[in-house]
Simulated scan of single mutants.
Amino acid sequence: MKFLKLLLFLVLIVLIAGTLYFATQDGSYQIESTREINAPKEVVYDIVNEYKTWEEWGPWKKEDPTMVFNYAEKTSGEGASYTWQGEMDGGMNTTQAIPHSHIEQRMTLDTPGGERNPEVYWDFKSTENPVTKVTWGITGDHTLMDKVYYAFSGMDFNGDMKKMFEKGLDGLEEAARKEINKYSINIDGITQYSGGFYLSRTTSAKAQAVAQIMSQNYGGIKEFMKENNIVASGMPFTIYNETFENGDVIMTNAVPVREKIVVAGANNVLSGYTPTVTAVKATMKGNYTNLGEAWTKVMQQIKDKGYTLADEKPFEVYVTDPQNNPNPADWITEIYVPIKDLE
C-alpha cells in the first residue's frame, strides 16, 4: 500500500512538473512565406480577396478530398466569409481589406482539443512591374494541450504550416498566371468607322522592337500635346502602313484630336486625317501578345468572304488604357481592316 501511495505521489509530481514545464513554454507563433509572382498586384490581390477562388488554388482539398465549402452572401472585402466541413471543420472571416495592399482574416478551427482562432494576414507589394511580392502569414497562441500534443506526437507545426503555405502560393501563382493570360477574339463583321484628325509619329520597327518603339512614339505625342494644351478626342490607334513576313512593320502611332493641328518645329509629330471607311471589325480582349492571332483570324474572314481590300490601311484602336487596367485580360483592342464597298 505504501508503495502504491509513493508511486501515485511520484506520478502526481511528474504531472505537475510537466504541466508547469509546458505552461512556461512560449506558445505564441508567427509563420509566413513570401513569393514573387509574375502578375500585377491588383490581379493577385483580387484572387486572394475573393473566397470563391480559394477552392481552386488552395492546398487544403488536395490534403482532404472530403472537404465541402460553403460561401456566405458576401465573399470578398471586409466582412466576407466562408466555412468548410471535412476532417477538421472551420471557417474564415475577412476583418480588414486594404485594396491591392493588405488583407487580415480571422480563422476558426474546430480541433479535437477545442476551437482555435489564429489570425491570417496577406501583404502585396509591387516590385519590378508586373511582379508582385506576396507575403502570407499566420499568428496565434498554442494552448497547453496543443503544446503537450506537439511535444509527444512529434508533429512539426511550424514546418507543416510552412509547407502548406508554399503549396498554396504555388496554386496562387498558377491562378494568377491563368487570369492574366485569358483572352478572347470576336469577329464583329462589317461596320462603318468614322474618321477624323489625329497627331502621329510614323516609324519602321523590327518585330522584336515594335512595342518599345510604339511606347516611345506615344510618349512623344502625349508630351507634345501636353506642352501645347491639346486634348485627345479618343483612344490611341496604330495604322499599319506596311507589314513584312518577318514581322517588321512601318507604322503610324496616332492620337485622335478634334480638329486639324498645325504642327511646327522639330518635334517629329505630324498631323493627319482618316476618312470614314467601311471595314471588317474584330474585337480582342486580352494581352497585346495575342494580337497576331486576332489579325490572322480577321484576315482569314476577309478571304473566306471574298471581300476586296480598300486602299486605306488597316489599323487597331486601343480601347482601354493599361495604366488604368492592370490586368492584361481586361485590355480591349479593336481591329479595323478597310474593304471596298459591297455591291
Rank of each mutant, 00 (worst) to 15 (best):
A17Q: 06
D170V: 10
T135A: 14
V277G: 10
V148L: 09
N70C: 00
L10C: 09
I250H: 02
D89N: 15
S76L: 03
E87I: 10
S200N: 04
N186P: 03
F124W: 02
I47F: 10
I98K: 11
G220T: 01
P338S: 03
E42P: 13
V134Q: 05
P275V: 07
Y21V: 03
K178G: 10
T276P: 07
V317W: 10
A80R: 08
Y218V: 13
P112Q: 07
N158E: 15
Y273L: 13
L309G: 07
S271K: 03
V210I: 11
D110P: 01
Y318C: 05
Q96K: 15
F224I: 05
T191R: 06
L342T: 13
V298S: 09
Q85D: 13
T24K: 12
Q85Y: 03
Y240L: 11
N186M: 11
G306L: 12
P275C: 03
V319N: 02
E334F: 00
V317Q: 09
K305I: 10
L291G: 13
V280N: 00
E227K: 09
P112S: 03
K305F: 03
R116T: 10
A207E: 14
E56S: 14
Y82T: 06
W84T: 09
K305Y: 04
D123S: 01
E174R: 06
P256Q: 02
F224R: 00
A310M: 04
M161E: 12
E78G: 13
T289R: 04
L144E: 04
K226M: 14
Y82C: 00
A282Y: 15
S215L: 09
M92R: 01
I261Q: 05
W60V: 08
E32K: 11
N253M: 15
L172C: 05
G27N: 04
L15Y: 09
D46G: 07
F224W: 10
Q323V: 15
I213T: 15
H142C: 04
K61I: 02
L20Q: 12
N267C: 00
G219D: 01
Q85V: 10
Y198G: 04
K303G: 10
S33D: 05
G86W: 05
P112D: 02
A80V: 13
G77V: 08
V262K: 11
